[in-house]
């Protein structure tokens, strides 16, 4: 089962939803397990929201973001590339302490924490002046049950 879909997106706040829902449809069309699709969709949404919110600053007019979705054999891969300045959302925010009571909780970093929990591999690279984030999830076997 091999498939690919590549889409361009703009650094606008409405775009992560559009692309996340495209991935949901891509997964359904290729009969991927709904649980894996839901988890990867959320991870994709969180990472894209981060990129759209923080990666471009004032240079948004020249921004080019490309999202590729691929199934090859038993691996699902999503690749996000942009031409913004170096920006690694995986290290941008500290991991949140999810054990704190409500009064002490801060919400920063929660999106990336969810993304890291819900996909097997999250990788950042700076390649030829572009940021590249890769999300990978094997299809054989369910992803590990996340723990709190």
């Amino acid at each position: 089962m091999d498939a690919a879909l590549e889409v361009g997106m703009k650094p606008q706040s409405s775009e992560p939803r559009r692309v996340a829902e495209l991935f949901e449809r891509f997964g359904a069309e290729h009969d991927l397990p709904p649980k894996i699709v839901m988890r990867m969709e959320l991870a994709l949404d969180e990472v894209l929201t981060n990129v759209v919110s923080y990666a471009f600053g004032e240079d948004a007019a020249d921004a080019q973001i490309t999202v590729g979705m691929y199934i090859s054999g038993s691996l699902v891969r999503i690749s996000i590339e942009d031409n913004g300045p170096p920006f690694n959302p995986l290290t941008e925010a500290a991991d949140p302490d999810v054990e704190l009571p409500a009064e002490e909780r801060e919400i920063g970093g929660l999106g990336i924490h969810l993304a890291k929990t819900f996909v097997r591999t999250l990788r950042y690279e700076r390649v030829d002046g572009r940021n590249r984030l890769t999300l990978e999830q094997p299809l054989d076997g369910q992803p590990e049950e996340p723990s709190e």
């Binding site: 649980k35 839901m38 959320l42 949140p96 999810v98 054990e99 704190l100 009571p101 409500a102 909780r105 929660l110 924490h113 969810l114 929990t117 819900f118 996340p146 709190e148």
Partner: peptide
């Protein structure tokens, strides 16, 4: 279930 999983991972089931 799939929403509960998000709540659990985020620690919201403690809140």
């Amino acid at each position: 279930d799939h929403i509960r999983e998000v709540l659990e991972v985020s620690g919201f089931t403690r809140l």
